[in-house]
Nucleic acid binder design. Structure first.
Lengths: 151, 151
DNA sequence: CCTATTTAGTACGAAATCGAACTATAATAT
DNA sequence: ATATTATAGTTCGATTTCGTACTAAATAGG
């Protein structure tokens, strides 16, 4: 495989990833309604999928966004009582982000509401193929993630 | 496959797509520097990858963004002479978006500058697996795209 | 035709995102 | 210990994104 071929494949791949992300985010945004953004929901989801109790800085790093953007998202989530910001006992400079029961419920309800969309598309989507593509995405994610941490 | 399994697979898939998109967009943003955004570059790329001469409305629809957002992106690109906005001879209300030579050159140069990133990752990335995952992404894209057009 | 409705784009204000500067605390060096 | 440097978070202003209202042109119905 020549470098040019690799670049072409990678560029096509990331291009498709971008489009699929736009389309799926739009689906999610519809379900979220006007209350929250996809970014805010993603933080909530991350707190469950990975863990909560992390600092805002750790979340900003995980999402590859400036800490000021994360502060904004967390403020909105806290105002709606979906998360709690407590002081960090181990570091007086920072805080810890904990998801509330209301936050867990909101996440569960939102995911469940997406089942209608999946059901509507279930006879068209090839879930076996999607399942097989998942490890590829995870591997690419891991490699890109390690790469950016090599600063 | 139960509906719950399908929902789980789909949710994991779209979640990974979102993360990979964040990471790859960050790589691209680094190469773009402070001059342009990923959104603006994506428009430029679309004009080549699909076709130019389209109306701003068609582009807004393709990118699933409000027309006001597209107007803003196009204004920035036009100010930097990477595109031209001409009146539409077939419709006095609308315009046509054409990429300039400078726009083509900028896109080519940017893509070429990404070859360094790909080369750095080339011994870790499995391009064969990525190539095999590409049709899956394209199929999912097509299905989501058709679905949203059924309004 | 002529009116009513729809559509493309713009103007404007609100919210989200981001970078730079600042404060407070922690870690490090001497 | 004390001074220096680094880090976490906030504040503030600029850019991007977006929804609503508006204008101009095309389409549809009578």
């Amino acid at each position: 495989m020549t470098p040019d071929q690799a670049l072409g494949i990678a560029f096509s791949f990331f291009n498709e990833v971008g489009i699929v992300n736009q389309l799926s985010s739009a689906l999610l945004q519809k379900r979220l309604g006007n209350g929250f953004t996809v970014a805010q929901f993603s933080v909530l989801n991350h707190l469950i999928r990975v863990k909560d109790g992390q600092t805002p800085m750790a979340l900003a790093s995980a999402f590859q966004v400036p800490k000021t953007s994360m502060t904004h998202s967390l403020t909105k989530l806290e105002q709606n009582k979906l998360i709690e910001l407590r002081s960090n006992p181990k570091d007086g400079r920072s805080k810890c982000v904990w998801i509330t029961e209301a936050g867990k419920n909101y996440r569960e309800t939102t995911i469940a509401s997406l089942s209608g969309d999946i059901a509507r598309l279930s006879d068209k989507l090839d879930f076996d193929a999607i399942q097989q593509a998942l490890p590829v995405l995870q591997q690419v994610r891991q490699i890109l993630d390690e790469d950016r941490n090599e600063d």
